[in-house]
Simulated assay, not measured.
Amino acid sequence: MTIQAVMFDFSGTLFRLEQDESWLADLTDETGRPLDIEEQAELMRRMTAPSGQLFELEPEYQYAWDNRDLDPALHRKIYLEVLRKSGLHPEQADALYDRLIDPAEWTPYPDTETVLKTLAGKGVKVGVLSNIAFDIRPAFTARGLDEFVDAFVLSFEEGVIKPDPAVFRILLDRLGAAPEETLMVGDAEEADGGAKALGCAFALVDPLPTVERTDGLLTAVREHGVL
């Protein structure tokens, strides 16, 4: 059937938290030793990876990890613990975490605006569905992209996370879209691919740096005949 709606993941799909030398260059471990480039890159990966537990955790922190995208307080708690376990100085961990949850620090992929604007212009419903514990809408508003999005569904506001079919159903209902006429685009098969359980089509994109993935979204929607 013809695709009438497209749902997009946020991190690694429409936007990416890029490694910025201006606020990573002075990072040190608890002894004061500067982190090298590889260690900085690994910190960014740990902060933005869609899934995959990196450490064995005490029960208190395991609960926070499992529920991090449902509660902002738990999200902060576990990611500060991840940064500390990664060897980062506690004060710098706080500062880096604050960067993570600042929508202004997130960079849209080169084709994000084109895809959202074109879909809206064609009358295709557009939704954004994210497992996340902070409000990402300002990232869209600041760039004038919010006008091309019909609905946002954020896990911490709804109390449910991908791949639970229920969260996809919430967005489908808000878009007024049938699953069989909807495409889900995301960077994580495990989470975003949950839309397939409802009968949605699914397109996987690679969460590469924005300079390396210039047309991943365009390719994804074109391959499903949307553009």
Rank of each mutant, 00 (worst) to 15 (best):
D69M: 03
A120H: 13
L74S: 01
V82E: 03
E42G: 01
G127R: 00
T114S: 03
G123I: 09
Y79D: 00
Q62R: 13
S130I: 03
A73I: 07
R76Y: 07
P50C: 02
P90K: 10
E105G: 07
T112C: 12
E58W: 04
E38A: 13
V82F: 07
H75P: 08
L35M: 11
K117A: 15
L43N: 02
V115P: 03
A104R: 15
R84N: 11
A95K: 05
S86D: 06
P110C: 11
T31S: 13
D102F: 14
L88A: 10
Y79W: 03
V128H: 00
T114L: 04
D36L: 14
Q62K: 11
E38L: 08
E38F: 05
G123D: 11
R46L: 15
G32Y: 12
A64T: 04
P110E: 08
E105C: 13
R68P: 00
S51F: 08
E105P: 02
R45A: 08
E56A: 07
N67L: 11
R68G: 04
Y61F: 12
L116F: 09
W106R: 03
G123L: 08
A104D: 15
R45K: 08
L129I: 06
P72I: 10
S130A: 13
L129W: 02
T31R: 09
L96V: 13
Y61M: 12
P72K: 00
R68Y: 07
T114R: 02
Y97Q: 14
G123S: 09
Q62L: 14
W106C: 02
R33H: 08
Q92A: 06
H89E: 10
S86A: 15
E91H: 03
R99M: 05
